[in-house]
Design a protein around this nucleic acid. Structure first.
Lengths: 202, 202
DNA sequence: GTCTATAGCCCGATAGAC
DNA sequence: GTCTATCGGGCTATAGAC
């Protein structure tokens, strides 16, 4: 049983918000570790110590746990990205802020990055659109569009440049999460950011 | 019922190899469309017209269908890559051959590329290693290593350069398969190859 | 070798007491 | 709101006739 449900000894004081968080936390870990479809509700019950009934009461379905998780992660990411952008002026700085944020998150919260960016959400969250159509990625495309207009980025299709840049930045994250980068991402981040910029700069 | 099983009218002439191929073909399509875990054996039976018994006789398990498929695709890709490499001399040409092969395959056989490169195999094929540790990707790293040695590629970590290059090349494929590239890949391939090379050239 | 039928299991989701 | 117990269903894999 989850100790969150028994803060004193007899009376159960239950904070539903804490319970929601707890379910999300355990489900998140399991989803990343085993993949959504290999995590059953009983597995989450066992891991979190929270009962089936409570889970269905708070989320309604297993799919909805995943959906909530995804939205939280994406919202939080977008928020951080916008905060960092406020201190940037050039195209290079703005794109760099994107890359640095992702690389820092990959170190601090690898599960969060993996779930948000690399799971195949369309296979388990109905009606979801691909990751690259979300707000942060639209914003990167806008930044590059403006970069082309002001001569920072090479002339051409802005979409192509954006896809190149995000590809060059995100691939190292993927390999890092697969634990196969021979050196830690923190050490090589500068090189990756340089390379990605070299690919599209004017 | 599958017409392969009934080439004449009464007697069933059954070519086990043709049957294997047929199962692989239908399973492949379904895996890509719905994701491995949402495809059941009964679904494959219904789609292919081949019975449960035959499927288990020929493959032993659902996982083994996926494994066979993956190995076939990867072997065929490696073969094509090596063939094309024989006509290349410079680093640029060799890396270009990799990119062109993938872009051509993406047009000719999108399901093949999606299954081979973008499904999360670790979630359903036991003991499999990440895609980027397979022969073709090792070969790309070797090409880049030699490219650095001969001064074609910028000095630095060869692994970093390889990850940058494959990231910049593969990301457009992924977006194309998600049907969200605004223009067909054939039209923009040159730009992507240019960008990826610009990222790592000396 | 191939078929049909089904065993045996575990799943997601719900019911109903508290 | 939260619990335990359980339902109905669909799954992988096998058994046994042909």
């Amino acid at each position: 049983m989850n100790e969150d449900s028994l803060p004193s000894n007899k009376t159960r004081i239950i904070d539903p918000e804490a319970k929601r968080e707890s379910i999300l936390r355990f489900a998140h870990r399991l989803f990343v570790e085993k993949g959504y479809h290999r995590v059953s509700i009983p597995t989450i019950v066992e891991a979190s110590g929270i009962s089936t009934g409570a889970i269905y009461n708070l989320f309604g379905s297993k799919e909805n746990i995943a959906r909530t998780l995804y939205q939280k992660l994406m919202d939080s990411f977008m928020q951080s990205f916008q905060n960092r952008l406020q201190e940037c002026t050039t195209t290079y700085e703005k794109l760099r802020a994107f890359a640095e944020l992702i690389y820092e998150l990959t170190e601090k919260d690898p599960d969060g990055v993996e779930f948000m960016l690399f799971m195949r959400h369309v296979e388990f969250i109905a009606g979801i659109s691909p990751v690259c159509m979300t707000e942060p990625f639209k914003l990167v495309r806008e930044i590059i569009k403006e970069g082309i207009a002001c001569g920072d980025v090479k002339p051409g299709d802005y979409f192509v440049c954006a896809v190149t840049y995000t590809g060059a930045i995100l691939r190292p994250v993927q390999l890092q999460l697969d634990c196969i980068l021979p050196r830690p991402l923190a050490e090589t981040a500068e090189e990756f950011i340089d390379n990605a910029w070299a690919a599209i700069k004017a």
